[in-house]
Design a binder for these strands. Structure first.
Length: 484
RNA sequence: GCCUCGGUAGCUCAGUGGCCAGAGCGGCAGCCUUGUAAGCUGUUGGCCGCGGGUUCGACUCCCGCCCGGGGCUCCA
C-alpha cells in the first residue's frame, strides 16, 4: 500500500495510463464485463464504487455524518493548531482507537507477523530511498536541519525493507512476515481531499509484508492473507456485504492467473471491479482493496494487499535459494484493517446508515467507551451504584455512574445519546434485590437480570477482543466536557 | 493546489452599514428528591475566524490569509 498512483506518476504518464487501463466487472461466473455494460441491478454499492452513475451530479452539500458523530460522541476532533488532517483524540476516542490497534495487532500476531518498529523519518539522500522517493516528489512532509533533508514515511515499507536488506534469509524462512503498526504514516494529501476521518494527512496503519520465494508461494500466502483480512474486518464489526472488492492487475497477469483472480471474487461472494492495465506501470502485478461505501455514497479503501515484483530488487533484499543462488523475493504488502482512523470512520458511517433504517445507532460492544451506565434514582443510591460499577469493572466491564443531580429521565436520555448499550436504574426497589432492571439498547426493552448475569452476557459478547478500562472517571459528575 | 460554499457564546444557530449583538442547549448557583429519552428559577458567557482596506461609522461591503464543508476519482 506504499505507493499511490497519483503521487507516483506525472501528468503525462497519467494520461498515458488512462488510455491503457480498462475497467471491468468480474462476475461470480468468471465473466469479465466492461463497466458500462454491466447490469448493476441489485449491486448498488458496486455501481457507486465503479463510478458508473446515472446521476452525474455527485455534489453533496452536507457534513459527512461521521464528522458530526466523532465530535458529538467526544471521540475525535480537528486540531486547528496542527496541519489539516492531523486529529486530536479525546479519552473515549483514544480508547476506541487503542482497542482497534490492539485487536489488529493481535490478529497479525496470530497470522505469524513478526512485529518490528522502524523510524518515521528517513534521509532523502539515502541511495536506495532516493530512487524510490523521486517518484513521490511533492507529497511528502520534509524536515530539514543543517545540511540534511528528511522525509516522513508514508508507510512502513522503508523501514522493513531496509531491515530485510541487512538480514540473512534462507528460502526456509519464507514466507517471511514482518509487521509494524505505523504510528504514524504521513501523506501530504491535497488540502481539498481531506475529510474528517476518511482521509487524513497523518494516520495509523497496520502494514504487514510477506517476503515470498516465488509466485506460487506468493499466491498461496495471498490467499491466507485474504482470510486474515476478512477475519479482521469481521471482528471489528463489519459484514462482508458492506464491502466492494476492487482488483488492479495487468492483462498479462490476469491471463496467466485467471482462475486465481476469479477465486478471489468467489470468496468475496459478489462481482468485483477490475482495473486492467495493458502494461505494468507500478511495482505490483496484482492488488486488491475492500472498499466501504459511506452514507454520502463515497467509496474508500480499507483493507488491501499487493503482490510487489519490484522492491525486492530495488532494496536488494535477497534470500539463499535451495540451489545456493541468491534471489530477490516477491513482496506482499497488506493492511488487514486499513487505516485505524478509517475503521472508526466506517463504523460511525455504518451506525448512521442504520438510523435511516430505524436501527438505533451503536458501536460494537467491545468498543463502547461505557458498556454499562448505572443511574441512581437519587443521591441516596449513589453508593449502591458505585459498588455495582466497581464490581463490574473488576470483571473487566466498563461501567460508570451518573451521579449528577438530574432526574432519572434526563440521565437516561443522556446515556442514550451516548449510545450506551446497557443502562441500569437503581432506586429503593433495587436495594437488597438480586435482579435489577437493565435497559438494553439493542432491543429498547427492560430485562430483569442479576449483576452477574449482565456481566457474563457482556463478557460473552466481547470474547476474543482486547480490553481497556474506562477512559474517564467512573463518576459522570467528575468529568469535563470536551465537546459542546 | 484549483473551483465553490461557509466561519457570530463551550455547542447548534438567528441577526443588522449606526443605540448596550440574540435564542436554545451547556456551564455555574439555588429549588426539586426524582423510576426508563429533556423538572423549575436565576446567572455566567462573545477581538461576530485572523489581518488589512473602503467609510463619519464595518459583525455587515472589498482584498488577503487561516480553518471547515462540497467538487476536481484519490486512496489507507
Amino acid at each position: 500500500m506504499s505507493e499511490k498512483r497519483e503521487e507516483v506518476v506525472s501528468e503525462a504518464l497519467k494520461a498515458e495510463e488512462e488510455q491503457r487501463s480498462s475497467w471491468h466487472i468480474l462476475t461470480l461466473e468468471g465473466d469479465l464485463v466492461p463497466v458500462d455494460e454491466f447490469n448493476y441491478k441489485g449491486y448498488k454499492g458496486l455501481q457507486t464504487f465503479s463510478g458508473y452513475e446515472v446521476d452525474k451530479d455527485r455534489t453533496v452539500n452536507q457534513v459527512p455524518p461521521h464528522v458530526t458523530l466523532m465530535k458529538s460522541l467526544e471521540l475525535v476532533d480537528y486540531e486547528p493548531a496542527s496541519d489539516p488532517g492531523n486529529m486530536r483524540y479525546y479519552p473515549k476516542g483514544r480508547m476506541m482507537k487503542a482497542l482497534l490497534e490492539d485487536y489488529v495487532t493481535g490478529m497479525i500476531h496470530d497470522y505469524g507477523g513478526m512485529e518490528v518498529e522502524t523510524p518515521i523519518m528517513y534521509n532523502m539522500n539515502h541511495p536506495t530511498l532516493a530512487n524510490y522517493l523521486n517518484r513521490f516528489p511533492a507529497r511528502q512532509y520534509t524536515i530539514e536541519h543543517d545540511d540534511d533533508k528528511y522525509f516522513l514515511r508514508f508507510a512502513a515499507c522503508f523501514g522493513q525493507f531496509l531491515m530485510a536488506h541487512d538480514a540473512t534469509i534462507s528460502y526456509r524462512d519464507l514466507p517471511l512476515r514482518i509487521y509494524e503498526l505505523t504510528k504514524y504514516s504521513f501523506r501530504r494529501e491535497q488540502r481539498g481531499e481531506l475529510v474528517g476521518l476518511r482521509r487524513l494527512r497523518t494516520f495509523t496503519m497496520p502494514d504487514v509484508h510477506a517476503m515470498c520465494r516465488d509466485l506460487p508461494q506468493a499466491k498461496k500466502e495471498f490467499k491466507r492473507r485474504y482470510k486474515l483480512v476478512r477475519d479482521t474486518l469481521g471482528g471489528i464489526g463489519f459484514e462482508n456485504d458492506e464491502f466492494e472488492l476492487g482488483i488492479r492487475t495487468t492483462e498479462e497477469f490476469y491471463k496467466k492467473n485467471k482462475r486465481f483472480i476469479q477465486s478471489m471474487v468467489k470468496q468475496h461472494g459478489k462481482p468485483a471491479l477490475v482495473e486492467m492495465w495493458k502494461e505494468r506501470f507500478f511495482y505490483f502485478v496484482l492488488k486488491y482493496e475492500l472498499n466501504f461505501i459511506d452514507a454520502l455514497g463515497k467509496a474508500s479503501a480499507l483493507a488491501t494487499d499487493q503482490i510487489d515484483v519490484e522492491n525486492g530488487e530495488r532494496y536488494d533484499i535477497t534470500f539463499m535459494e535451495e540451489d545456493g543462488h541468491e534471489k530477490h523475493p516477491l513482496i506482499l504488502h497488506c493492511s488487514p484493517s486499513g487505516a485505524i482512523e478509517r475503521d472508526i470512520y466506517a463504523l460511525l458511517e455504518k451506525a448512521h446508515m442504520g438510523m435511516a433504517k430505524g436501527v438505533r445507532p451503536s458501536l460494537p460492544l467491545w468498543l463502547a467507551p461505557t458498556q454499562v451506565r448505572m443511574i441512581p434514582v437519587n443521591e441516596g443510591h449513589v453508593k449502591l451504584a458505585m459498588d455495582y460499577a466497581k464490581k463490574l469493572s473488576g470483571g473487566k466491564v466498563r461501567a460508570d455512574v451518573d451521579d449528577r443531580g438530574e432526574t432519572v429521565q434526563k440521565k437516561i436520555r443522556d446515556a442514550e445519546k451516548e449510545w450506551i448499550p446497557y443502562i441500569v436504574v437503581l432506586g429503593e426497589r433495587e436495594v437488597g434485590a438480586e435482579k435489577v432492571p437493565v435497559r438494553v439498547r439493542s432491543d429498547g426493552k427492560l430485562h430483569k437480570m442479576s449483576l452477574k448475569e449482565l456481566g457474563s452476557e457482556i463478557k460473552k459478547q466481547v470474547r476474543g477482543k482486547p480490553y481497556r478500562p474506562l477512559p474517564l472517571p467512573m463518576s459522570v459528575q467528575g468529568r469535563p466536557k470536551f465537546v459542546g
